[in-house]
Computed example of a mutant assay.
Amino acid sequence: MPFGSTAEAVRAWVDGWVVSRGAAEPALQPWGFTVEVGTPKEVARHVLPAADEPTVRKIAENTTAAGVWLKTFVPPETLEAWLPCGWGLAGGPGFLMSTSLRATEPPPGLADGYRLRSWSRAGVTRVLIRAADGAFAARGQIAVTGRTAVVDQVETDGAHRRKGLGRVVMGTLAAAAAGEGATTAVLGATPEGRALYETAGWRVLAPLTGARRTAA
């Protein structure tokens, strides 16, 4: 795989994710990282590259504020069995994925009637595709942190799926990151996204499962 270990890929994902979302710098912990996200639905998140039951239980039982998340790289059923009262799985099942980037590989062409715009600001490149009538069709963004990049918030509107727009977004983002010197990319995928990314050469490194503190 492009990374030497899953832990290395997790660190790259965390570093790029905070740039993409404008979150605080990750705070190093004995078990991983804490990120202050600063939104009502996600105040902060704890990321555990190598989660185990005693560590998850200790963090969860010492967290009383609603809106704090745990991100782990174990299957949903494993994490769910470790959670105390007041916690629940959140975000659905996911996957940590990675790929190598190639600066010489052009993005695929866009279907007729659609138009694409991309722009970069504060280390993040964003891609927006609009339909012929100007409506939103698809989007995505990528944050470059040195030799690695993190793809984030890729979305295609339901009315515009199965037209190759997701591939265009991913190809455009990959080309932009490679042009900035990134050689490896990582992302967190949903099951639906995984199918798209695997056709573009991405590989699954580990399951990605989240939980959220919901009540006192």
Rank of each mutant, 00 (worst) to 15 (best):
L116D: 05
V19T: 10
L70P: 00
G164W: 02
A178T: 07
R203W: 01
G210R: 03
A51Q: 05
L165K: 05
G134S: 11
S118N: 11
P26W: 05
T63Q: 03
D15Q: 13
A211I: 06
W69Y: 10
M97K: 07
A122D: 15
R115M: 06
A143M: 08
L205S: 05
A216N: 09
E8Q: 13
E198D: 07
L116M: 12
W87P: 04
T104Q: 14
A66V: 14
V10C: 09
A174F: 06
E42L: 04
R57M: 09
Y197P: 01
R130D: 12
T64M: 07
A178P: 08
L89V: 07
A206K: 02
L187H: 04
R194E: 11
L96Y: 02
T39L: 10
A132L: 11
R11P: 00
E8N: 05
F73S: 03
A65C: 03
A24S: 14
L101D: 06
T199P: 00
L187W: 01
V168W: 02
A216Q: 12
E80C: 04
G123C: 10
A12G: 09
R102E: 15
A149G: 08
V168S: 07
R167N: 14
L173A: 10
E180L: 15
P108H: 10
E77A: 13
Y197F: 14
